[in-house]
Design a protein around this nucleic acid. Structure first.
Lengths: 134, 134
DNA sequence: TTCCTTGCAAAACTTTTGCATTAAA
DNA sequence: TTTAATGCAAAAGTTTTGCAAGGAA
């Protein structure tokens, strides 16, 4: 019996695949999505998993540090964790809070400012805020 | 004796120019800058002003609701209040936390996605993350 | 055994709220 | 005087941390 893909993936990142970490990974990495820590905790618990709030936060921070997920700051209220780590942008519906991925090819920059001396661009976060059409 | 410019500006927005509001406005609107609520509270108190934390938060939310300032979500830890409400973008130095304005003419989009049906674009937040040059 | 991880609770932080008091018009 | 704003403290929400117990190698 060989290791399951998810466990492999964690191991390859140098993350020990404990039961809780595998469960969080299975939930979050199943598809491209945006989830909050509280949503993940609630989802795991409603499916019978034994996991604490501290472990959810620790695990999400660990995954983010290893590039397995990406933490988003789209509204001030809480962090969102994006299981899509490929470069992409977001629509943000300010009324509903919904986040929608925007693939890189749908945005083209014909001009970008040069980074200040001694610095280089580490990434570009683009959030297109949406409201109901008037 | 006519009203001072800052008091006028608040009045014109339908905001009653109380002592605390005028002090916050004088501090924040003096120049284009990015300040946190705690920074504003500390700055006002160190200059001898009598103001409470609740009033600082209430006032910043009030100013933002009236378009006098703009609230930024660049890192998950806290809100930043930008006294520059003209359209513009930001550099964000992830190591130091520094925020630098990027004027609109320095960024050009040659392609942007169409907003989903029933919605329209309310604004575009662009944050260019900076790291030390390697 | 040895080291790492987890759970729990408490702490830390940011922001909001309830309510009596105070200030503005 | 009448209404709205303030201050204080407490509450609320999110995230982190300390530490004892549990699990993996």
């Amino acid at each position: 019996m060989h290791a399951k893909p998810t466990e492999q993936r964690l191991s390859e990142c140098g993350i020990r695949p404990t039961a809780q970490r595998v469960q969080i990974a299975l939930l979050l990495l199943a598809a491209p999505q945006h989830l909050s820590a509280e949503q993940i905790l609630a989802s795991l618990r409603s499916s019978g998993a034994r996991v604490s709030k501290a472990t959810v936060y620790n695990t999400l921070n660990l995954f983010a540090a290893h590039g397995l997920i990406r933490q988003l700051s789209v509204d001030g209220s809480r962090a969102w964790f994006d299981s899509n780590v490929d470069a992409h942008y977001h629509f943000h519906d300010v009324a509903t809070g919904a986040l929608i991925d925007v693939p890189v090819p749908e945005v083209e920059f014909s001009k970008l400012p040069a980074p200040p001396p001694g610095t280089e661009v580490a990434g570009i976060d683009l959030v297109i805020r949406l409201r109901k059409k008037s």
